[in-house]
Simulated scan of single mutants.
Amino acid sequence: MTFIRAYLRASTKEQDAGRAREDLEAFCRERGLTIAATYEENESGASLHRPELFRLLKDSKPGDILLTEQVDRLSRLSDKDWDQLKREIKDREVKVVALDLPTSHMMMKTEDAFTGRMFDAINGMLLDMLAAIARKDYDDRRRRQAQGIAKAKAEGRMKGRPEDAGRNEAIMDMLRKGQSWNTIVRATNCSRSTLAKLAKRLEGTEAAAG
């Protein structure tokens, strides 16, 4: 039996990885099909560190379908990493179907062997093309962002984030009370580098007071 496995991804924890769930479910309903399992994660598409994607592939049997909203949900990878992911997909004999790739929709149907191989070849070529476009878009955005930051610094417009004085004072109070760094990080969600700066500031304050 062929299973349809939906893959949902967003880049950051602030984004809703499940946003496209309804679109994928509607796509299957229109074809009289049902999604058997859903895999959702918040990871960068430019990284192969995708635990849920690889869990999906590990769970899959030959002929299963990996269904995703857009090809860029699957890959904004470099050529090398994309080749590695493609090999994994091919070795598992998983069919990739993306809502933004109409030719892939034919993979949902049972075809004779020749037709299936033809669609597989066409789909693979278009997947490569869209993955390359997605990566270029990622690289372009990163380059524009870096240029914008460099320009802002050169013009003296970039001052960094304003300090959260209330939170930082609370953190220093926790340090005064002898709470561990791990406890403070878990309670405030601050970075260890921020914590180190505040600890150093507290030492300076206490030294001056002494």
Rank of each mutant, 00 (worst) to 15 (best):
R192F: 11
D64C: 08
C190I: 08
R201N: 06
C28H: 06
P51G: 08
T103S: 14
E169C: 09
R135F: 07
A207H: 11
N168W: 05
A209K: 12
F119G: 00
M108A: 13
M172V: 01
T194W: 00
M158Y: 15
A6N: 07
R157M: 10
K109L: 15
P102L: 12
M107A: 15
S191C: 01
L67R: 13
M174H: 00
W82S: 03
R21F: 09
S78C: 03
G63D: 00
A113R: 07
V94I: 11
A6G: 07
T12D: 12
K200Q: 13
T103K: 12
P62M: 04
L66W: 03
T34C: 07
T68H: 08
C28P: 02
A46Y: 03
R117P: 02
D81K: 04
A150V: 01
A165Y: 05
A146T: 06
E163G: 07
V96W: 05
S104H: 13
K200R: 14
E111G: 05
R9C: 00
T115K: 08
T103R: 13
A121L: 15
D173Y: 06
K58D: 15
L24A: 10
R186D: 14
A20C: 13
Y138S: 08
D91R: 14
R141M: 14
Q147A: 15
L85A: 08
V97W: 06
G45N: 03
A20V: 05
S180F: 10
V97D: 04
K90A: 12
Y7K: 02
A46P: 04
G204L: 08
T205D: 12
W181D: 11
A209W: 04
L66Q: 05
L53I: 03
A98D: 07
Q70D: 09
A187W: 05
L24I: 09
